[in-house]
């Protein structure tokens, strides 16, 4: 079942494109497991930033957007960075003047890529092997099965205890200033 569902479009594509050798009767669909980055965007109050605009910048070109998209209703956004471009990927999330930028380190952890091949039909030539190309990032994100690394979120969010401790120390700073300037002048 699966075989025919995935095979047919590829087969049609290969038959239609004239650039391929004439003896190529088969098609070859493969998949590999890659690492994707999932972004979770939420406001301070914990409500998700749904339908916020996301722009991803590659480490070697921080000026031009590498990928653009929109978060889902849970404030999540998933993209597959190019593993060859190691470094800090900048992800900008914004909505109505609010937003944040985080940098996601990619490349330090060597991602194990599992390549499995599914032969749809008997291929007579190795030239028909359709390698997934990384030329268009949007297409890559849509088509590649993504292993979503979301065991634990890493980012700059504080726990409520840290936050309120900081708030209390800040408050004490202001109240202390007030007390200092209300002291009796000798």
């Amino acid at each position: 079942m699966k075989r025919s569902r995935f095979g047919c479009p590829w087969l049609a594509l290969l038959l239609l494109s004239g650039a391929l050798p004439a003896q190529a009767h088969g098609s070859n669909v493969q998949f590999r497991t890659t690492e994707a980055i999932e972004i979770q965007a939420q406001f301070d109050s914990g409500t998700p930033m749904s339908e916020a605009q996301v722009t991803v910048y590659a480490p070697d070109d921080p000026a031009t957007p590498w990928l653009q998209g929109i978060t889902d209703e849970r404030g999540h956004f998933t993209f597959t960075p190019d593993p060859a471009r190691a470094g800090n990927w900048e992800v900008k999330v914004r909505q109505a003047g609010h937003g944040d930028i985080i940098s996601v380190p990619v490349g330090e952890l060597a991602s194990e890529t599992v390549i499995a091949q599914t032969h749809a039909a008997d291929s007579t030539s190795a030239a028909t092997t359709a390698e997934p190309t990384d030329s268009t990032p949007a297409a890559t994100t849509a088509e590649q099965p993504a292993l979503i690394a979301r065991a634990d979120w890493s980012g700059s969010a504080y726990t409520p205890l840290q936050k309120w401790l900081m708030a209390a120390s800040g408050l004490w700073g202001f109240i202390g200033t007030a007390l200092f300037f209300t002291r009796r002048k000798g």
Binding site: D44, K163, A167, G170, L171, F174, I175, T177, A178, L179, F181, T182
Partner: peptide, 16 residues
């Protein structure tokens, strides 16, 4: 300054 400092504290904390 005491008055200003206390209102700054209120301004600071209301954003949370």
């Amino acid at each position: 300054i005491p008055k200003a400092s206390l209102l700054t504290a209120a301004f600071f904390i209301t954003s949370l």
